[in-house]
Design a protein around this nucleic acid. Structure first.
Lengths: 302, 302
DNA sequence: TGCTGCGATGCTTTTCCGGCATGATAGGAT
DNA sequence: ATCCTATCATGCCGGAAAAGCATCGCAGCA
């Protein structure tokens, strides 16, 4: 039994006339007769009552017609579902992200993506950078939006830059730096720094090392925090100062003072991390495209 | 797209190996490769990721596999449903009947039929004889169990005798006939009869005419009733006497007296009425067979 | 570096689908 | 009564397409 038989039977069942059905199917009437006869023989049931005035459906034929109609419709739907998935118009993507560097990117991206691909469910995963990388590698995440990974994190992944942010320094009003207009990197060397924990955010520490490398100095961490809120609290408590990005200012707001960091060309690089042997799904591709759009827009309007 | 493509794809999706899938399908591997390639081309989606170590399903392939499995299963179920219907193991039949003549036949028949064809829904229709005939003619009833039709009722129908019953006369204890051991037909001529209404039960009146014809007499109806219960009430009230079958005695019981009717060879003939150009469904055929069995059993055990 | 297992490709064979011509049948018109 | 016509079935043939066979290319592995 092939779909052809079923399509043909539906045509006959609707036209109740072999000749007309054959015309509609664009085949000759004898060919149709044969196919229907084959079908009936195969399932071993008389589906039609032939007469010289046309055909009528037997009770079995009526039942079969109804069943087959449903089946053919279902086949179309199935194919269409798969096509929609292939076009990135359905399905789901898992997007990992670091909350702090993406506060300005993610919300508009989600909104824009929802517009162009309303059928795609976007599953967000707020994870530490190591977890993000791991997720991208084992393909539980189609992509991650985060600061540029470094060191062994880069293996098996590829990074695409979305935007860079200048670096600032955050401190309390009581700190000596508060009187400066900007903070040169050299002055940072002697300061006690508050940073993210080396365990959960290894790339953060590596970044600090890279930042101080030109001065042949090492960062001096007074505290390692595992979240932005505790980091802010530590700085506010006067335990030390910290590096800040424009986004950081959005989160911490007026609780702290901010000064531009000078004496370095380093910037905070935020972008998309994907699996290196990328077998990108169309939906994920679209999402990346949206991210690029959002970032170029924000870059030009600023 | 043909079912062949879908069956092949399921095989590949399960084996995740063209060679093994081809073996299972009993075709050569290249043929399978080709068919799958054709399928992918037709729906325009890559369903499989090929490698020299085998194949794996893409997200689209996974979705398609699940859909297609369901579809193929559904196709099998549909065919099986139709076959069951053709074998008389499912579906429904509409059986008309006259309650009075069928009190002993119908219940055991239903029970026996339920045993051999539990999937068939039997719809019972208690109708007047004219309605039964009409139902059989327009095929809203597959069959009717009733007394033998006569006159124009027989047109377009055929009757199959199931059983005959001797005729009795029913009366009150106060009636003169109550002192007789049996009632000869000649004595009935002068009596006031209670019968069924000529409008709803034309064959009943025709039967009476046939009964009295040898005596060149006509039945004298004192009352025409439209149901057995009102007829019994009329007789009990002493309005007249009535013809009775053994079944009638079962219904009316001890409220009346019964005497055998003699002087005639007429009997009450109960049987199956079907459409003449019978396109009998298997289920209805089975039901008729059951009826025959039940009646021959009852005839021998009596 | 050969070996092995995999899927793809080129070519041939076989199957079977579709087309044409024709047959069989039964209403309906003349 | 007979022809006409509409309908579905059958016989035969050509061609499309499926299946088979041999072989290639590729990649992992010993």
């Amino acid at each position: 039994m092939e779909l052809r038989h079923l399509r043909y039977f539906v045509a006959v069942g609707e036209a109740l006339n072999f000749t007309k059905a054959a015309a509609r199917l664009r085949i000759a009437q004898p060919a149709l007769s044969r196919q229907i006869a084959d079908l009936e023989e195969e399932i071993g049931v008389n589906l039609l009552r032939r007469s010289s005035r046309g055909v009528s459906l037997t009770a079995e034929g009526k039942l079969f017609l109804a069943e087959i109609r449903e089946l053919l419709k279902q086949a179309d739907v199935s194919v269409e579902k798969v096509r929609a998935l292939a076009r990135g118009q359905s399905g789901e993507i898992h997007v990992g992200y670091s909350p702090l560097p993406t506060t300005e990117i993610l919300p508009p991206a989600l909104a824009a993506f929802r517009k162009i691909a309303p059928g795609v469910k976007v599953m967000l995963h707020d994870l530490s950078s190591d977890e993000l990388i791991a997720g991208v590698r084992n393909e539980t995440l189609e992509l991650a939006i985060m600061v540029e990974p470094s060191g062994e994190q880069t293996a098996g992944t590829k990074f695409e830059l979305l935007r860079t942010s200048p670096l600032w320094v955050a401190m309390t009003a009581a700190h000596p730096f508060a009187r400066l207009k900007s903070v040169p990197l050299e002055k940072m060397v002697a300061e006690a720094l508050i940073g993210f924990s080396r365990k959960d955010y290894p790339e953060y520490y590596r970044f600090l090392e890279r930042l101080f490398a030109p001065l042949h100095a090492k960062p001096r961490l007074a505290a390692e925090c595992d979240s932005a809120s505790s980091l802010i609290a530590e700085v506010e408590a006067g335990r030390g100062i910290t590096l800040a990005s424009p986004n950081f200012k959005l989160v911490a707001g007026k609780r702290l003072l901010y000064r531009p960091l000078t004496g370095t060309t380093e910037v905070a690089s935020v972008g998309i991390v994907r699996a290196a042997n990328a077998d990108m799904t169309p939906a994920a591709d679209k999402f990346c495209e949206i991210l690029r759009q959002i970032c170029t827009e924000q870059a030009t309007t600023t």
